[in-house]
Design a protein around this nucleic acid. Structure first.
Lengths: 332, 332
DNA sequence: TTGTACGCGTTATCAG
DNA sequence: CTGATAACGCGTACAA
């Protein structure tokens, strides 16, 4: 592998000249440029990125921390991040923590070793103090999640309003026994959805039955299991509000297996609006998060921080949308 | 950020001593070690990975090239890769080419800039000659795919036998008009499945109707569209063999929308066995690929190459399995 | 067992 | 517009 020195020798110039021509496409006399460019081609020279990064202390790379790659919502957000990053010549590395705290810490630590320039996290679970300490030292943006009462830059929707919209829809349809299935992780977004679920019931003079609240894995199989628990509990319910579409899909599958029809016997509403949700049988009523946009905003924000610009708005709230399909039994 | 030099000064030793203690947990006198370890803690020293990588010309990182992160099969394989990589202290970077040739080339090129030590590709679409050239120079393993007649190390299932098994099952169930929906990309795996689809029909004295073969995007929405094309064509068919579960799911959704029942009116068989496939309505009959294992094997193979061991078997063929569920209408 | 000296490939600074 | 020189932080051959 040729080095910049060899190119310089071949072109009869100094290494710095080559370096400058590489960095700046208008630098140098036309003739010098040509000679250097030729030598580069001739020798099939490729800059050693490692050396460059070492010298500049800059990797032009960010990492995106995701709790679970099998949930495609994270992918859809990442697409937005990638688009924006591309436009600014940044590379994006995706890491999957599989919801393991140790991996989250590991990847956050990596930035101290100069491996990346910034982080967008959708799995910020380490203690808040640690996280805030981190944010004061290194560029960090949290997407999709909500770090309550914190100054950490965040891009997300209004979970409370969105959940209220979903619940209001079910209640308007006449449901009085609404179950809730959610993640047992302590992500704040799930807590907000659970709290709002309770509040909306109370606001509408409906009772909150703890038996109708199940927490488990935020996956298809998790939803499947929780729905089975609901059925096994013997409690009556005519609707399920799932805190994520993956769980909603699993729940529908479980209901069907027991001969319970969706939406005729039980209505189901999800959260996220994944690609598969509109193709599912029945198609899911759900809250659409502006996933692509969340990704774009998150990167822009991170870029500002990396450039050490002041970030005025620390929290960006993007609009959600209630998407009504068949799983709740009524088109309005 | 403290450097190794500062640690050395603080501990009253030379930088090389620190370096050696870091690299080797038995090196040095007990007392020296203690002093150095203390200084490291004191100064919150973190080795500069960039400098280290630059020095050793080794990143201990591999990249996994994936064509489409929204198809979870790639994620399930990546889990296997990650497990194995972890065990050998390698980091895994996931890149999503979104099926763009230019991105594939871009990422392959990156290895020439020393950014990674090796590549596992599930989206090897650049011209075969280029790919083979690359493989002679850098560690590369192809997973899931098949590069026909090539010496490039590969881990996959036997596509032809697997497809034959799926087709034989449908034919045994009495289907005579079987449609095929597949990807319009020129991935060899799809070509093999298409060819075998044709062969199995012929072997069983069934006619091959080109109208019943549709190619499109290998996604849910792609499958949705292709099924609609089949219906619109007016041709009769009682079964669909989809070259991927995502397409199968989209197809089922389209059929249902037109009031065509699955499996009563049309049987559907997919390929891959994703997590969602067993929860879909109806649950998918499909070919299970040993995804996790494919990932593990692929990394082991790559590791051997990176260590410059000779790889004797260039192609690993792992066993597939025909998983029979409701979408084909019969339990055997 | 430990320290000294050097170099990896690049870019920034300064001088010409 | 261009060249010489230094420096980034670390690992290692060699010397002590």
């Amino acid at each position: 592998m040729a080095t910049i020195k060899e190119v310089a020798t071949a072109a009869g110039v100094s290494p710095s000249t080559v370096s400058r021509i590489l960095a700046n496409d208008t630098w140098g006399k036309e003739e010098t440029r040509k000679r250097v460019l030729n030598a580069i081609k001739e020798l099939q020279y490729n800059p050693n990125a490692l050396a460059r990064q070492f010298r500049t202390q800059e990797t032009k790379t960010i990492i995106v921390i995701i709790p679970d790659l099998s949930n495609t919502i994270f992918h859809e957000i990442t697409l937005g991040i990638e688009a924006e990053a591309d436009a600014h010549n940044y590379k994006v590395l995706i890491v999957d923590t599989k919801r393991q705290l140790s991996l989250e810490s590991y990847y956050l630590n990596a930035i101290q070793q100069h491996e990346y320039d910034g982080v967008i996290s959708m799995d910020a679970n380490i203690p808040r103090k640690l996280l805030e300490q981190f944010a004061t030292k290194y560029p960090l943006v949290v997407a999709l999640m909500n770090i309550p009462g914190s100054q950490i830059p965040t891009v997300r929707i209004d979970n409370i309003a969105a959940t209220a919209a979903a619940m209001k829809h079910l209640i308007r349809l006449g449901h009085k026994s609404i179950a809730h299935i959610t993640s047992s992780s302590d992500l704040f977004a799930y807590k907000e959805r659970l709290d709002t679920y309770r509040e909306e019931l109370i606001k509408n003079n409906l009772s909150v039955n703890p038996q109708l609240i199940k927490a488990g894995e935020a996956t298809i199989s998790g939803g499947f299991e929780m729905a089975n628990q609901l059925i096994a509990s013997g409690e009556k319910f005519t609707a399920i509000f799932a805190a994520g579409d993956t769980m909603a899909m699993g729940a529908i599958s479980a209901l069907r297996q027991k001969g319970i029809r969706v939406p005729e016997d039980v209505a189901v509403v999800g959260f996220d609006d994944l690609e598969v949700s509109s193709y599912y049988n029945p198609p899911l009523t759900t809250i659409r998060q502006p996933k692509y946009k969340i990704g774009q905003y998150a990167f822009s924000k991170l870029l500002s921080i990396m450039k050490e610009e002041k970030v005025t708005e620390t929290v960006d709230i993007l609009p959600y949308e209630l998407v009504i399909r068949e799983s709740c039994g009524h088109y309005l």
